[in-house]
Structures are given as structure tokens and as C-alpha cells.
Amino acid sequence: MASLAEIEAMIARMALGDRQAFSALYDATGAKLFGLCLRVLNDREEAEDALQEAFVKIWRNADRYAANGLSPMTWLIALTRNTAIDRLRARRRHPDGDDGIEDMPARTPTPEAAAIAASEAKRIATCFEELEDVRAQAVRGAYLDGMTYQELAQRHDVPLNTMRTWLRRSLLKLKECLSR
């Protein structure tokens, strides 16, 4: 995969309307971002649509990337994840199939844990280990499954306020670990 500096340069060229830079960025990051769309949406067709939508936004917003202060991969990931979650929530609000939250199997964290490579990922994984399993799962469920407090409370079978308290504490604990 391209280095962060290379990705940053591609985005800068895209901001100037360089179409080749767009293709280069797609080739360098498409598989990572498609993996993310699939992980969030768990539906191939929707993930394909989400990926396209994300890259359209990336192209259109490339000129504003420099101002946001995020590292390039983080920007791409945040934009793609938000796009996928918007779709997921639109689908959940209008379940024409059986996509209700009750039917969603609780995912175990193993596939992600197994694939950890990047140092950023290692750092957060280490800190996740310090959280109780079930609490780490809740944060992961919110980030990768786009779950709301309501849905998390249902999945973990605790009252909503308990869920909120758990999650906030977990976030602060995570932050404390990450800033060590």
C-alpha cells in the first residue's frame, strides 16, 4: 500500500482536479475502504454503492482536506464510515426485509483482532485489551456496526442509561490509555 505521504500527495493533486490522482488513490485505498463498507453494511450491493458514494465525496471534498487536520487515511476512513453508517441507518429505519436489529448476530471481535497490522491499530488494540471484553465490544459495535445507544442496550441487555454510562467510562479509559 502507498505511504501516508503518497496518499496525502494524491489528495492534494485531486484538489487541483487531477483525475489520474483520483484513480491512483482509488487503486491505493479502494480495497481498504471497500472492506470497511462491507464490514459496516454486511451487504455486498450496498457496500458497492457506499464505496462509490464515498469516493464521489472524496473527489468533491479533496480541496478541503488540508484544512481538517486529520491524517489522510483517517480522513478517508472517517468519510467512508460515515457514508456507510448513513446507509445502514436509512435501511434500519425502513426495513423492508428482515434487517431488524434483533436479528443481527453479535459479532465477535476476532476477525479484526487477527488482522491487526498498522501501528495505529496495534495501539488501540492494546488499549482495548484493558477494557472489559463486553465494554470493548460495545465501543467496537458503535464504530464498526454503527449501533446507537438503543441498539447497544438491546444487544447487551442492559438499560439505556447503563449503556451510556458504560460507554462513556470506556471512552475515557481508552483515552487515558491511548495518551500514555
Binding site: G35, M73, E120, A121, I124, Y143
Partner: peptide, 25 residues
């Protein structure tokens, strides 16, 4: 955003179907 992106970094990559690239262009 930076910290939590680590969770996404750990998700396995999946190559999108080739037609997506052309459709996007």
C-alpha cells in the same frame, strides 16, 4: 477520529469489483 480509525485499519481489505472503478470515473 485518529484513535478510532485504528479499528477500521484492522478490518480486512476486500478488492472491490473492477467495474466500480469505471463506473466511478
Amino acid at each position: 477520529e485518529e484513535d478510532l480509525a485504528g479499528l477500521a485499519e484492522a478490518v480486512p481489505e476486500v478488492a472491490p469489483p473492477p467495474r466500480i472503478r469505471q463506473q466511478l470515473r
